[in-house]
Nucleic acid binder design. Structure first.
Lengths: 194, 194
DNA sequence: TTATTATGATACACAATCGTCTCATAAATC
DNA sequence: GATTTATGAGACGATTGTGTATCATAATAA
């Protein structure tokens, strides 16, 4: 299955999308179910992925790749600290389903996403950015970087949750996220940004 | 199995604890595995719980009950708004494993926790408290209550994550949570309290 | 057009899980 | 101490998921 054929590309994509959508909601979904959701025969699933593990691994890979790819525009923008964090939110929110998939495997048995080198890469970038924001005075220095990062991630999922439930659109949620993150929910929003 | 016997009480408790600990990490865990973790024979598990579903339902029930019970001291304290939210965090954080279990079944297939009447009860209380805080000027009125609640929940899990990883103790995390929630991570923490 | 290739359907063996049952044993209740 | 009751171990059939194989068909590539 070398993906030279239109059909193979389409099948593969459908299977990955099915896994991406179904596995976080129903982690016990059988490969039969996933194939059905993808609208593809079970046998074909096995032609593309040797096992359940292989499918999950592939969905993880695609999720990481998509997120990193979504962030590539930032390479040329030379943002730092707070500005970089705001831009990253904007770019990642449309891919919240990928983030959800990653988070649903956050603690999954053997896998332990926090030890994945791809996660480590993204984490390292975030640490740098948070510490820039601290230097710039946009984040209080006495807050542990780990806590700030957890908060950042937590708010991203909170934002995603509102988007999928259609309680707000991406624009609104991005604004809510940034103001809550930097200013909290308390009164009198401050001018912390230029 | 009417729980008049010491042994039955102990077995039941062990099984629920095993489910509470294992299912969020490994949602595909078989009942054999859960029985082993509990240190109890598989046959005995079936004597207590008719099925996997029944076990999960029971763990959910116990989780809800424990959380609500942990919050009972507040009935006599007559707190409102921000004060009530801070106190609730303090009381709930030690039960973060229960919260984690609930959250891991947040979107689980048929269940959809957000439609559970027990969840609806807790949610209703939270809505009231958040709106009190808005009236009191402790939370900005222009923020959607739904967003504020999501943020609150998200930070609770963020806090729990640091606790289980032993990156901070409950006291520190409670303080981080409250300051981040009400003041954000930005500079110059304000005097929003009393 | 012709040759190639992915696909769906189906059948298959294998393993794991499920849920029930029995029976001897050990612990509890009385 | 006598009786009741929960337990562990094991056997059991039924069901379900897994992974492989085959074959006719339809879409693609050449």
């Amino acid at each position: 299955m070398l993906l030279r054929d239109k059909r193979a590309v389409k099948s593969r994509r459908a299977l990955i999308e099915a896994g991406l959508a179904e596995l976080p909601v129903n982690p016990m979904a059988s490969l039969t179910e996933i194939a059905e959701i993808a609208g593809i025969g079970r046998a074909t699933l096995y032609r593309h992925f040797a096992s359940r593990e292989a499918l999950i691994e592939e969905v993880l890979k695609v999720s990481f790749e998509d997120i990193i790819q979504a962030l590539t525009p930032m390479e040329k923008e030379n943002l730092r600290g707070k500005q970089a964090m705001m831009r990253a939110v904007e770019l990642m929110l449309p891919l919240a389903d990928r983030l959800r998939f990653l988070s649903s495997f956050w603690l999954d048995g053997e896998r332990v996403l926090s030890k994945d080198p791809r996660y480590a890469f993204m984490e390292k970038e975030t640490i740098i950015t948070v510490e820039q924001a601290k230097e710039d005075g946009d984040i209080r220095k006495e807050l542990p970087t780990r806590w700030v990062m957890n908060t950042y991630d937590a708010l991203l999922f909170s934002a995603w949750d509102m988007i999928v439930k259609e309680e707000a659109d991406i624009r609104d949620v991005t604004a809510l996220l940034m103001t809550t993150f930097f200013d909290g929910v308390g009164p009198k929003p401050r001018e912390t940004q230029e």
